[in-house]
C-alpha cells in the first residue's frame, strides 16, 4: 500500500489538518508503512466472524431524556480563544 502525496493532501483536508508542503512526502512514507503493517490483517478470512465493538458486548446504556446539567456557559467559555456576548467568535463564514 503506497499513498501518493495527493492522497495525503486529501486525507489531511478530510482530517482538517494543515501539513507543511515540505513534510507531505515524509507523511506519505510513514503512513504507507503503517498501512503495510496493518495490511497483515488480510491473511485471515474473517467472513464468518462477527465484529466486536465492546469487550463485553454490552449495549450503550440509555437514560431518561431529562435536563440534568446546570447552565455553566460562562465557565466553559472561559477556555475559548474568542468569545463575545456568550457566543464563540470565528472568522466570517457568510459573505
Amino acid at each position: 500500500m503506497s499513498l501518493s502525496t495527493a492522497e495525503v493532501n486529501k486525507i489531511a483536508w478530510l482530517g482538517r489538518i494543515a501539513i507543511d508542503a515540505d513534510k507531505i512526502e515524509a507523511y506519505a512514507r510513514d503512513l504507507s508503512g503503517i498501512l503495510d503493517f496493518v495490511e497483515q490483517m488480510s491473511v485471515l478470512d474473517t467472513s464468518a466472524v462477527a465484529p466486536m465493538a465492546h469487550p463485553m458486548d454490552q449495549a450503550q446504556r440509555l437514560r431518561l431524556d431529562l435536563v440534568t446539567e446546570a447552565d455553566q456557559r460562562e465557565l466553559f467559555q472561559a477556555n475559548s480563544p474568542s468569545v463575545e456576548a456568550g457566543l464563540f467568535l470565528v472568522p466570517k463564514v457568510i459573505e
Binding site: V8, A12, L31, V38, S42, T46, V49, M52
Partner: peptide, 25 residues
C-alpha cells in the same frame, strides 16, 4: 490521518470492520 483514511468512504469494511472482527478472534 491514518484514522481518517481507514474510516473514509470505501475503506471502512477493509480496515475498521476487519479489525473489529480480528478483535473478536
Amino acid at each position: 490521518l491514518i484514522g481518517t483514511y481507514v474510516l473514509s468512504a470505501g475503506y471502512y469494511d477493509a480496515y475498521y470492520l476487519k479489525a473489529q472482527k480480528i478483535r473478536r478472534l
